[in-house]
C-alpha cells in the first residue's frame, strides 16, 4: 500500500522546487527538458500504479500513451474538435481500451502477463502504422496545443507549456496516490500479495485489476495527449514496444512501488540520455549498460536505495514480492496440472 513517509514528502518538495526553478531560469532546451521529464514522469506514475502496486508488469504502456497521443491528434486535426474536448476524449477512449486490455490480460500472471500486454501494444502499433487513416509512417502533423488565452496563458510559449506539464504532473501525482490509498488500491495490493486469499474473501479479482488498469491507461493517455501537444506531431514510433520497455526501465531505475521513485527515475533517465548522447552516437550502449547495472543491483532503484539507507525499517520491496509471487504461481500451476 502507498504511504506518504516523511522522506517521500521531502523528496516531493525538493523535486517540485527544483522543477519550478529550472522551468523559470533555464534556457530554451532546458525548459523543453522539463516538459519532456514531466510527460515521462506522468507515464511512469501510471505504470507504477499497476506494476508496483498490482504486480501487473505491463509492456503496453508506451502504446497506451501513443494511443492517447493519436486520439488527441485525430480528434483535433481530423475531427476538428476543440483541443480541451479532445484532451478529455483522448483520456476516455484510451481509458476504455486500457480497461479492456486489463480485463483480458488480468487472468494471466508473470511472464504471460508481460507477453500478453506486449501483444496488445504491438497490435495498436500495427494498427496506426498500417491504416492510412492514421497517416501511416508519416504520422499526423499540425497538432494544436490547448488554448488557455481565456485565463491569459499562451501554451505555445515553451516556458508556459512546461509549467502546464508540471501542473498536470502534480494533479496526476495527487490522483494516483489517492487512488492507491483508497479501497481500490489497497485491494489491488492485497491481490498482488496473495490472489487466492483475496478471491476467497469474495473479491472480484479481475474487476479490480481491470479498473486499476483502466485508470492507469487514462493517466498514460494524459501523458500522450501532452506529448502530442509538446512536439505538435504524432508518429507510430510513439507506440512501439521499446517505449514501453523504456518506461519500465525508468520505473525500476527510480524505484518500483514508490510513485515518487519513478518520477526521480524520469529525471535521471532524461538527463542521462541527453548528457550521454551529447558525447557519443553510441549512447544506447552506455545507457543500456547503466540500466542493466541498476536492474541487476539488489536495491530497488535510486529511491528504494535512498529509503533503505535513510529509514531504519526496510520497507518490503515490491520487486521481491513480484518475484516471490511468480515462483509461487508457477509452482501452483505445476501442482494443479500435475494433479
Amino acid at each position: 500500500m502507498f504511504r506518504h513517509t516523511s522522506l517521500r514528502f521531502w523528496a516531493l518538495g525538493l523535486i517540485a522546487a527544483a522543477a519550478v526553478l529550472r522551468a523559470l531560469t533555464a534556457e530554451y532546451f532546458g525548459v523543453e527538458m522539463v516538459a519532456e521529464i514531466a510527460i515521462l514522469a506522468i507515464l511512469v506514475i501510471a505504470l507504477d500504479m499497476v506494476a508496483g502496486f498490482g504486480g501487473m508488469v505491463s509492456l503496453c504502456h508506451g502504446a497506451l500513451m501513443g494511443a492517447g497521443a493519436y486520439a488527441y491528434a485525430m480528434l483535433t486535426v481530423k475531427v476538428g474538435l476543440a483541443p480541451s474536448a479532445a484532451f478529455a476524449g483522448a483520456i476516455a477512449i484510451t481509458g476504455a481500451a486500457s480497461w479492456l486490455i486489463g480485463a483480458v490480460c488480468g487472468r494471466s500472471h508473470g511472464i504471460y502477463f508481460i507477453m500478453a500486454t506486449l501483444a496488445f501494444g504491438q497490435m495498436g502499433y500495427s494498427l496506426v502504422f498500417e491504416q492510412p487513416v492514421f497517416g501511416g509512417d508519416d504520422g499526423v502533423s499540425g497538432v494544436p496545443r490547448i488554448d488557455l488565452s481565456l485565463i491569459g496563458l499562451d501554451l505555445n510559449d515553451p516556458r508556459t507549456f512546461a509549467f502546464a506539464c508540471l501542473f498536470v504532473l502534480g494533479l496526476v501525482y495527487w490522483f494516483a496516490t489517492h487512488v492507491l490509498q483508497a479501497g481500490l488500491g489497497r485491494t489491488l495490493t492485497g491481490i498482488m500479495h496473495n490472489e487466492q486469499r483475496m478471491r476467497a474473501l469474495g473479491v472480484n479479482v479481475w474487476r479490480i485489476k481491470a479498473d486499476m488498469f483502466g485508470l492507469s491507461g487514462m493517466i498514460a493517455a494524459a501523458a500522450g495527449a501532452l506529448a502530442a501537444q509538446h512536439v505538435m506531431f504524432v508518429s507510430p514510433g510513439l507506440l512501439n514496444w521499446t517505449v514501453s520497455g523504456e518506461a519500465l526501465v525508468v520505473v525500476i531505475l527510480g524505484g518500483l512501488g514508490t510513485i515518487i521513485g519513478p518520477v526521480i527515475g524520469a529525471i535521471a533517465f532524461v538527463m542521462l540520455k541527453h548528457e550521454v548522447s551529447a558525447h557519443t552516437d553510441y549512447w544506447h550502449l552506455v545507457v543500456g549498460l547503466i540500466l542493466i547495472a541498476v536492474v541487476m543491483s539488489r536495491a530497488n532503484g535510486i529511491f528504494g536505495w535512498l529509503e533503505q539507507r535513510l529509514s531504519r525499517a526496510r520497507p518490503s520491496s515490491a520487486r521481491d514480492v513480484i518475484a516471490h509471487q511468480v515462483r509461487k504461481d508457477l509452482a501452483a500451476q505445476g501442482a494443479l496440472e500435475d494433479a
Binding site: Y28, E32, V231, F233, S235, G237
Partner: peptide, 15 residues
Amino acid sequence: SPPVGLAKTRKLVMQ
C-alpha cells in the same frame, strides 16, 4: 524519428 528531429531542430534554432 520525427519527434526527436523536431526537438533537436528547436534546440538548434532557439538555443
